[in-house]
């Protein structure tokens, strides 16, 4: 930039920068729709699933007679008005399952055909790098590995959640039609195993949701709003050269 090299009277090179904003595309419209449809639909699935689970709420974490966590304490049932709504739960579950399935299925098709999968699928480095991202996020490590649209931990998480979604559909169908779809039930290790797996995946969604929300809050507004608007605002440095003041640009006289 030749213009920037003009000397001022004090003999110093004068260069100035200005920070400018630009709009950078991030999330395609389709992905934003899939994401925001899935969120309330999955919420309804978990709520109606809880109404169903209540009717035979036998799961716990513990050993022998020792119970660490009971699924679920009465206080949670009472707070969410769960007891004695099995038929309501089934009615909603077997309606919203279609929305959950179709939305998830279209999402997977979209990522495949649009090429978005390239940003999402983990590569051979992702699993190792995901640890480094985790250490960085926990402030144990100073630097994070270089990343594209998603970091390695996100790639692993956002791919795992798709596998979990497929798992919920498979285990769900195995419980829903254990005789007509006996081979699915067999694949899941039997009827009771399928129910446990279906339940465990749901707990997985809740944990995913908690971590996801914390990470989104920490990442800040610009990152969050991109999931609604589709773009991120990026700041970049532009070199500016103010018009030299005439009185001071007389260095050639000497």
């Amino acid at each position: 930039m030749a213009a920037a090299k003009k000397k001022r009277s004090n003999g110093l090179l004068y260069v100035a920068f200005i920070f400018l904003k630009r709009i950078v595309k991030k999330h395609p419209l389709a992905i934003r729709w899939f994401h925001w449809i899935n969120f309330p639909v999955l919420t309804v699935m978990i709520w109606s699933g809880l109404l169903i689970y209540w009717a035979n709420d036998v799961y716990r974490l513990g050993w022998g007679d020792k119970t660490l966590v009971k699924f679920f304490p009465q206080s949670i049932y009472d707070a969410l008005n769960v007891p004695f709504h099995l038929s309501t739960g089934m009615a909603f579950h077997f309606f919203f399952m279609w929305l959950f399935f179709v939305n998830g299925f279209l999402y997977v098709l979209y990522t495949i055909f649009s090429g978005e999968w390239r940003y999402l699928a983990p590569d051979k480095h992702s699993f190792k790098e995901a640890w480094l991202v985790l250490l960085h996020d926990l402030h144990i490590r100073k630097t994070a590995p270089p990343q594209g649209k998603y970091n390695a931990a996100q790639r692993v998480a956002y791919s795992a959640i798709i596998v979990m979604g497929a798992g919920s559909i498979i285990t769900g169908l195995a419980i829903y039609k254990p005789i007509q779809l006996y081979w699915l039930c067999y694949l899941c290790g039997g009827y009771e195993a399928a129910r446990i797996e279906h339940f465990a995946l749901t707990i997985g969604y809740v944990l995913f949701f908690l971590i996801h929300v914390i990470q989104v809050i920490l990442a800040g507004w610009n990152n969050f709003q991109a999931m609604v608007t589709g773009f991120e605002v990026e700041q970049y440095k532009e070199v500016t050269v103010p018009e030299p003041e005439p009185a001071e640009t007389t260095t050639t006289d000497a």
Binding site: I52, Y53, A55, N56, R195
Partner: peptide, 9 residues
């Protein structure tokens, strides 16, 4: 395996 609508069998 007798299956109840409540979820046990």
């Amino acid at each position: 395996d007798f299956k109840c609508v409540e979820g046990w069998s």
